[in-house]
C-alpha cells in the first residue's frame, strides 16, 4: 500500500500544478519573444514570421474597429465581446513586436450579420496562418508565441458564433 500522505502530496501536485499554471510564463514569452531586430539592414529571416503576423494582427484590429464603428447599435453584450476580442488582437500585435501606431484599412460588410460572419471568417484564417507561421518559425520562442496566438484565435471563432446582432 502506498503511503497515504505521499498520495495526498502527489494529488496536490497533480491538478493544482496544472490548474495554477498562471500567465507568468506567457508574459515572460511575450517580453522576450519579439526580440527587436538590431538597427540597420540585418532584418533576420527568423523575425519574418513575427513581422508578417504582427501586420496581420493590425489588419484584424482594423476590421473589428470598422465593424464597431459601422454598427454601434449591436446588442451591448455583442459589443463587449467584440471589444474584448479586438483588444486581444492588440495584445497579440504587441507580443509579436508590432507597433500600436501601425494602421490598416478595413471596410465593414454591408449589414451586421455579414459583419459578424466576416469576423468569424477572418479569425479562421488568422488561426490557420499563425499555426503555419509557428511551424515555419526558426526561432523557438516565436514558435511558442505563435502557437498560443493561433490557439487564442481559433477560440475566437466559437466566441463569435453565438453573438446576436
Amino acid at each position: 500500500m502506498p503511503d497515504a500522505t505521499a498520495i495526498a502530496i502527489t494529488r496536490r501536485q497533480g491538478l493544482l500544478a496544472l490548474a495554477l499554471l498562471g500567465p507568468v510564463g506567457v508574459l515572460a514569452a511575450c517580453s522576450s519573444s519579439p526580440d527587436p531586430s538590431p538597427a540597420g539592414s540585418s532584418a533576420s529571416a527568423s523575425l519574418a514570421p513575427a513581422d508578417a503576423s504582427a501586420q496581420h494582427e493590425t489588419e484584424l484590429i482594423a476590421l473589428y474597429d470598422a465593424v464597431l464603428d459601422a454598427y454601434p447599435d449591436l446588442e451591448p453584450e455583442t459589443i463587449t465581446v467584440l471589444t474584448t476580442l479586438r483588444d486581444q488582437h492588440g495584445q497579440h500585435r504587441d507580443a509579436l513586436g508590432g507597433s500600436p501606431d501601425a494602421t490598416a484599412k478595413a471596410t465593414a460588410p454591408e449589414n451586421a450579420t455579414a459583419a459578424l460572419a466576416a469576423l468569424v471568417s477572418a479569425e479562421h484564417v488568422a488561426s490557420r496562418e499563425r499555426i503555419r507561421a509557428c511551424i515555419d518559425s526558426p526561432d523557438a520562442e516565436t514558435a511558442r508565441l505563435l502557437a498560443l496566438i493561433g490557439a487564442a484565435e481559433a477560440a475566437h471563432v466559437p466566441a463569435l458564433r453565438d453573438l446576436r446582432t
Binding site: 476580442l85 505563435l146 487564442a152
Partner: peptide, 27 residues
C-alpha cells in the same frame, strides 16, 4: 502540437470559458 493547442482552446470555450489572449489556465 500547435493544432492540438488550438483544439483545446476551442474546447475550453465550449465549456464556457472566456476567450484569453494567451490561453494558459482556468483564470
Amino acid at each position: 502540437a500547435a493544432r492540438t493547442a488550438a483544439e483545446y482552446a476551442v474546447r475550453a470555450i465550449g465549456w464556457g470559458a472566456d476567450p484569453q489572449a494567451f490561453p494558459a489556465g482556468p483564470a
